[in-house]
Amino acid sequence: MSTSARQKQIEREHWTGPVRHYDILKEGTIALAVVVVLTFVLAGIFSSPDDPALTLKGWAKTAPDNLYAVTVSELAGTSDSASYGPPYNNGGDGVALGPLTPQKWMGVHQPVDPANDFVVTPLESQQQPSDVASALSQWKSASADQQSKWATAYDTALNDPNGANGDASKVPTGDYGPVPTMANGLVAMASSGALDGILAAPGQFYNTNTTKQILFLGDGSYLDDAATAAHLQGNEWGMMNETGSFPGQEWLQPFSFWYQLPIFNSDATTGIAATLTANADIYIFAIIAIMMLVLILLPFIPGLRSIPRWIPLHRLVWRDYYARKGTAR
């Protein structure tokens, strides 16, 4: 008899094995009560993950030089956001799995223009001191080419490791146009707290879209340092962790594991490790997809589907039944 025919025969047979009374509502109620009690007890022991939100004001107070440098890089188009690519802009191709570039396929459907969205528009939204207002006016009346020349020249001079090295007071004299004054203006706005409300939702009363805030924060060191302090970096199992002393997301271990491997966590600038690290997200996504497919198709994969026969854990669970079955023989 074929396996399929035997399966159908078993399904038609009347169950003659042991049965027991079972109340699913009672079990559900008990489980709910236990989980509620456990939630309160564990929250009491471990506290709750309610750290205050990071703000642009906090960035300006903690690392004003970094905010200043990032503002210049947004104007120059050299920030991470400016070179991210789809879905925000055309600054890059996004992640690639070999020849496959799904980010590029989806195109720019949530446009972010770092220079205007993070710097120019916020400065325009409020009454500015006369020097910042003049600088803004000069910037807006200049051609795109001229804007790029000013910003690139200042960005290069500010970040020159053999020169200013991030210190604005040491930047040599040059034709930087209104860029330094605009950057100072934005840092002043952020310090006052005004930038937090404006960058999130210009002209809107309610807002749940913090994309621009997070992108801008991500371009600097403030968000990165906070993630390191809270053990939330991807290369230190951060995906599994939670802020404070609260248990995190252990079920993300299969994802987090791959990010710890040197090939997905490399400082190399060329070679396979560099490619895999730069495109780690999509490669790990593909690995997990294959693992999930193996799990879904387990009953059809010879060898793997026989594991319960080799490791008969079910015989331990139902040992009474198998003991009786053995005795009956």
Binding site: K57, G58, K61, T62, H231, N241, G244
Partner: peptide, 15 residues
Amino acid sequence: MLLWQDEAISSGSYV
């Protein structure tokens, strides 16, 4: 709004 530095964020204990 509070800043995380002012709050002395607790990163918990790690093994």
